[in-house]
């Protein structure tokens, strides 16, 4: 399953605010399911209900956007992959923000959704540009590590390991991991506790 992710380009949606947690992205009642199907409709369900149509995910000018632009510590809290799944199923293919919570970020990598960080000034400038003109195309380029919009470009950051996985199409690590069965067995055989806790099996 090799699928290289080198650049994402499309219209963008601004979501302003720090510390937006995964309970807000997808409230727990929507986790009562055994598939991720249909989660897109419930992304930010409670925030949207409270904002009565004024939440960015409800505004007509941002429908069809592919890049989500957020601020600090986005995706903090619960490890639920339902959160990035809901965002992805809504249509988002990449996120740019000031910072991301670690488990959220790891989930996005495993799903093939790049999350890149940029300075507060850059994020604010992109959010303002797309708010002023929702037709603005925002391009996130993992080769040059730049975000581009209008005639502007600014640097972006991403962990080197994750970046390599996107560029080489190995963000879905499962096959790579499974292929190493002998090495995995060798590591396991060196761990003393696997000998002691025979009662587990």
């Amino acid at each position: 399953m090799v699928s290289e992710v080198k650049a994402i380009s499309g219209r963008a949606i601004p979501l302003v605010g720090n510390d937006i947690d995964t309970d807000r992205i997808i409230p727990a009642r929507f986790l009562r399911c055994v598939t991720f199907d249909g989660l897109g409709a419930h992304a930010f369900a409670d925030d949207r209900a409270q904002m009565q149509g004024q939440h960015p995910f409800d505004l007509p000018q941002f429908q069809g956007a592919e890049v989500l632009v957020v601020n600090g510590n986005f995706g903090c809290g619960s490890s639920r992959e339902h959160a990035p799944q809901a965002i992805a199923k809504w249509g988002i293919q990449a996120l740019i923000g000031e910072s991301f919570a670690e488990i959220f970020l790891g989930n996005c990598v495993a799903m093939g959704i790049p999350c890149v960080t940029a300075s507060g000034e850059t994020v604010k400038a992109v959010q303002e540009a797309i708010a002023a003109n929702p037709q603005t195309t925002v391009e996130i380029d993992l080769n040059t590590m730049q975000v581009r919009w209008h005639q502007t470009a600014a640097p972006i950051q991403m962990g080197e390991g994750a970046r390599n996985m996107f560029l080489s199409g190995t963000w879905d690590a499962c096959g790579q991991l499974v292929s190493q069965a002998p090495a995995i067995q060798a590591t396991a055989s060196q761990l003393p506790y696997l000998r002691w806790s025979t009662a587990v099996s």
């Binding site: 986790l31 390991g161 996985m165 080489s168 690590a173 991991l177 090495a183």
Partner: peptide
């Protein structure tokens, strides 16, 4: 160190997990 299987081509570590716990919410998928 003791749980490292190898360094992946991406530069990340393939890490052995000694105990995996699962529950009903995040495992069916």
């Amino acid at each position: 160190q003791s749980h490292t299987v190898r360094t992946l081509p991406s530069g990340q570590t393939q890490l052995f997990i000694g105990l995996h716990l699962i529950h009903e919410v995040t495992s069916p998928q």
